[in-house]
Amino acid sequence: MVESVVTIRSAGHSYDGRHWQFRDLDLDMKRGDILAILGPNGRGKSTLLRAMAHLLKLNSGMIDVLHTVGFVPQDFAGSFPYSVLDIVLMGRARHVPIFRNPTKTDTAIAMDALVATGMERYAEQSFNALSGGEKQLVLIARALAGENAILLLDEPASALDLKNQDNILGLMRDLASAKHLALAFTTHQPNHALAVADHVLLMLDETRTILGPVDEVMTDQNLEALYGIPVRSLKFQEGNVERIAIVPIFRDRSASAISTEKTVK
């Protein structure tokens, strides 16, 4: 039995005390394990992730974290054009005494983190000049430089093209297996959960949740309840491996064409 590095018991959060984003939530995270958090906009995915990173206080229950947490934000708008290495070095904040600068060792660790994400070539470039996918990789490197055992990623692949989505997801898989980190990420893409997650948390309406292994939770029925539109799982052979893709059934094109025509007139 592997020890939990994150233990959440009957956790609840509400901004106004009446509408709860989640309530009575129990959750465990283990090293080497990836948790995907799925839910519609405004359901509290990011809130939960922030509570796990101690950026928000719970209104009820507790979150016990056994190790330092690396938090990878979805977006990062720095006001000064720091170099990529300067940004990654910031991940060392917990390891550098308050009145000191990072040492050579800290710089070496930051470089290692850049190597691990394949971004070492960009070390001296301005962070602001990078593409969205590259920025995401650098922010992951920053979390790695902190030598955290837990990595929380807020929609890490949402704003990226397909190739970059694959890069980020592959890196997450590597970090969980090779570096033995505990990962949790929020996403709007059920296919991302299928691709990398071991466990999935669905945040349904009225603070109901479904938590379990990915193949048990990701059923058409659950996802339809989650998003409120029809969803189909398509099974197909890719090489010798059976793959599953989750396809949302969007409104029919002709139906929507008529409705926009009407609104135009």
Partner: peptide
């Protein structure tokens, strides 16, 4: 160097 950290924003700095 701490001012570098503060200059990236409150939540980010707190997370670090």
């Amino acid at each position: 160097w701490r001012i570098n950290l503060l200059s990236v924003g409150d939540e980010d700095a707190r997370a670090l």
